[in-house]
Design a protein around this nucleic acid. Structure first.
Length: 449
RNA sequence: CGGAGUAUAGCGCAGUCUGGUAGCGUACCAUGUUCGGAACGUGGGGGUCGCAGGUUCAAAUCCUGCUACUCCGACCA
């Protein structure tokens, strides 16, 4: 993409309303625009990041056997009356009526709707296990939205629902999502720690929150240091097989949020030098809630013994619109964002330091074509801005690699490459630059791990 | 929902106390000189001063009501 043809409204000055660093940087980098309290437009750069996150989620969900679909944002109130949550949910639920005065709501989640779909079609245990998910906008009328898209009212969430014939099978489904989540966050460059969690208003018995450590995190968290270095289950993990050893390994080390922390247990199980007490951002949560909805909404299947049983379910959420700021909270410095390659809006930015210089521009045009041909996602700053402004913008929007071509280098055949993360720069013959970038970027995509 | 603030050009702000033809920086447009870390000069365009009502010869400024947004608390993917 040529920057001259792109829409990238970066701000030089600090927006006054933004409190935390990710919100400030998302506004300054031209990723989002606030339209009302807790409502945001996603501008091209921000949306591109979210699409990359979405693709990773979809790939890892598919690997774990979950099937993607799409349910509507608006839901009929009757479905929620049936589960009893229409009255239980309170003012967080945005309610409205249509032209025929039918009570509707903007869905804050989809347990009722998916249960309705399930009970309409599935009759036999032989069709199980089943795990259906969608990625759709939700609305919760937060009393006080804040921190940009970290805590917005409208938010994009992946929510998945598993259906199994009994608790044992349901636990296996839960474990599949547990492993899928570990892989999903890792592929985004994050270290997300599964922590024992409260089951909250959704209810249930077994639940983990996935937490990214960050100073600006909303909740205090406690864990064993070694959990940060645990190996992620590889891509060839057998999701059909028994995942219990992986789960046991991950849950053997203490990790809990402030809601669930048992200090005596923490201090007993974790040696002092291994204790981490920090703050964290929740980027996902998984639940097993058994037959909570299937019983009340009569979602049953016929078991092997010929008798009807209510299905055992779990739900699995990942907040996409929260992940974007969470990644920024984890990866930034005083100059701006530092994207992990796998979610970066562009993998490399080509900086033509002097667009007025014919040699320089000719060289850059050639390189731009070569970078694209090499399969790299490239932003080409072909504008007439000064060099300083280009550097500042490139740093701000956090593209992992900068390929810098100045008039001197263009003449002598030398290119400079800056690694945004380390700040390290190296000079090399221009004809080597594309291959070098390829060798650095391809493994960093984490598509083969 | 309780407490505290803010609202003046795209963005950041001054002007309000003490009423008298709306300003600064930046961004934008034109032009010239620059050109490796957000360059400089000259010229230019852009504002129903959040909305409504009131006081006054005269309101960004004083009074009343409303709305939106932000921060602190309780709530939460």
């Amino acid at each position: 993409m040529r920057k001259s043809n792109y829409f990238l409204p970066v701000l030089k000055e600090e927006p006054k309303e933004a409190e935390i660093v990710s919100h400030r940087l998302m506004l300054r980098a031209g990723m989002i625009r606030q339209q009302a309290a807790g409502l945001y437009s996603w501008l091209p750069l921000g949306y591109k990041v979210m699409r990359k996150i979405q693709t990773i989620i979809e790939q890892e969900q598919a690997r774990a056997g979950a099937i993607e679909m799409l349910m509507p944002t608006l839901q009929p109130a009757d479905l929620w009356r049936e589960s009893g949550r229409y009255d239980a949910y309170g003012k967080e639920m945005l309610r409205m009526s249509d032209r025929h005065d039918r009570d509707m709501l903007f869905g804050p989640t989809n347990e009722e709707m998916i249960t309705d779909i399930f009970r309409s079609y599935v009759r036999s245990y032989k069709e199980l296990p089943l795990n259906l998910y969608h990625i759709q906008w939700k609305f919760r009328d937060e009393i006080r939205p804040r921190f940009g898209t970290m805590r917005s009212r409208e938010f994009l969430m992946k929510d998945g629902y598993s259906f199994d014939v009994d608790k044992e099978q349901a636990e296996r489904s839960y474990y599949r999502m547990f492993v899928a989540y570990l892989r999903t966050y890792y592929r985004m460059g994050l270290t997300a720690i599964p922590m024992k969690a409260e089951t909250g208003p959704i209810g249930g018995e077994l639940s983990h929150e996935f937490i990214v450590l960050a100073e600006t995190g909303e909740s205090a968290v406690f864990c064993h240091r070694d959990i940060l270095d645990k190996a992620i289950p590889p891509r060839d993990t057998d999701f059909i097989g028994d995942l219990t050893p992986i789960i046991d390994d991950w849950t053997s080390l203490y990790a809990a949020t402030e809601d669930m922390i048992d200090m005596d247990e923490f201090e007993r199980d974790v040696p002092q030098e291994k204790r981490i007490a920090a703050r964290g951002i929740e980027v996902g949560q998984i639940f097993y809630f058994g037959t909570k909805y299937s019983e009340i909404m009569k979602a049953t299947v016929t078991g092997p013994d010929g008798r009807d049983v209510p299905v055992h379910s779990g739900s699995y959420g990942i907040g996409l619109t929260r992940l974007v700021p969470a990644i920024i909270e984890a990866f930034h410095d005083e100059d701006g964002i530092i994207w992990p390659v796998s979610v970066a809006p562009f993998e490399v930015v080509l900086l033509n330091l002097k667009a007025a210089d014919e040699t320089c521009t000719g060289m850059c045009d050639t390189l731009y074509a070569q970078l694209q041909a090499a399969g790299l996602d490239v932003l080409y700053d072909d504008t007439k801005e000064g060099a300083g402004a280009k550097f500042a913008t490139a740093d701000l929007i956090g593209i992992p690699f900068q390929l810098i071509i100045g008039p001197r280098g263009a003449k002598s055949g030398e290119a400079e490459i800056k690694d945004r993360k380390t700040g390290e720069r190296q000079t090399m013959p221009i004809q080597d630059a594309v291959a070098f970038l390829q060798s650095r970027i391809e493994p960093a995509r984490r598509t083969d791990i």
